[in-house]
Design a protein around this nucleic acid. Sequence first.
DNA 1: AGAGTGCGTTCATCTACTGAACTCACTCGG
DNA 2: CCGAGTGAGTTCAGTAGATGAACGCACTCT
Lengths: 158, 158
Amino acid sequence: MKRTRFDDNPCPIARTTDLMGDWWTPIVMREFLVGPRRFEQLQKRLEVSRATLTQRLERLVEEGMLEKREYQPHPPRFEYHMTAKGLAFWDVLAVMWRFGEDWLFGEEGPMVALKDRESGRRIKVAVVDEATGEPLDMRALRMGRAVVPPSVVVTTDA
Amino acid sequence: MKRTRFDDNPCPIARTTDLMGDWWTPIVMREFLVGPRRFEQLQKRLEVSRATLTQRLERLVEEGMLEKREYQPHPPRFEYHMTAKGLAFWDVLAVMWRFGEDWLFGEEGPMVALKDRESGRRIKVAVVDEATGEPLDMRALRMGRAVVPPSVVVTTDA
DNA sequence: AGAGTGCGTTCATCTACTGAACTCACTCGG
DNA sequence: CCGAGTGAGTTCAGTAGATGAACGCACTCT
């Protein structure tokens, strides 16, 4: 399928879409909540085509979301670890979780839940304004030009 | 492309992926931040294929993310409006924005920013634990079985 | 009458994802 | 030392989603 690429798009949403818009990408990233993962493991758990998994992992490593680490040299065998960037992406996944659980299941809701690893307490995430801690009112948002540092505004003309 | 569908998957992330994993979907939804939109408008702004846009809008209406409303009868003309579900999806988009702006641009960052519609104040979103208001530590999360209400556990056997 | 607008549909082309089979390097059990 | 097993891919044919350009149609405007 011929796809319009967004990786150079000026909009942050578009760039993120380009990154995660490959089929399987969010689901592959989800798997790393539990720790490092190996190819065979992922392939069996996800029942994804081997070719597709190879490509996903390659791209995610290129993008710096995952790190490929050799855990034994003879024969060479690998594990994939999350990087800081990959960890940051979990914000997106957590909010997708919340949206899915609120809107994409029937009355009963999903059979799975996000929990605190230690206490077992069920976690629900919310999206807030970082400055105030208040939940966002999306209708109060708009997109605008980012403030350009003054140096950039200097004219070439004397 | 033959795709594995996730719309019946038990995982909320997978279902959300199915919904937004069609190419263009998040970008189409983004457009509705400003208000209702019409077909021609969207097509021109996004430079998306008309066939693709038709399909996206159809699916988003089916899914209840958008509502198609006739704004004149002769000839019939339509506008698409966000529903409550579509508005809720903006949580996901806002966090994608944040991830993109933090990780997918160079030193300068993007030329666009999310702002408060009235005050013009730049908004950065954060993902927090709804109960405590504390930022999430993703490494402290795990997936677990949702608690089943007792009524469901009753046996059919007397 | 002719141009313009809004909202599509159709079609050929391109290419991403799928599943199954195959490869290759090594290890292990007997 | 032989044959089965494992880990991490690659190859390949088949399927179907995305693309751009062209076409259709109902109406309005001048």
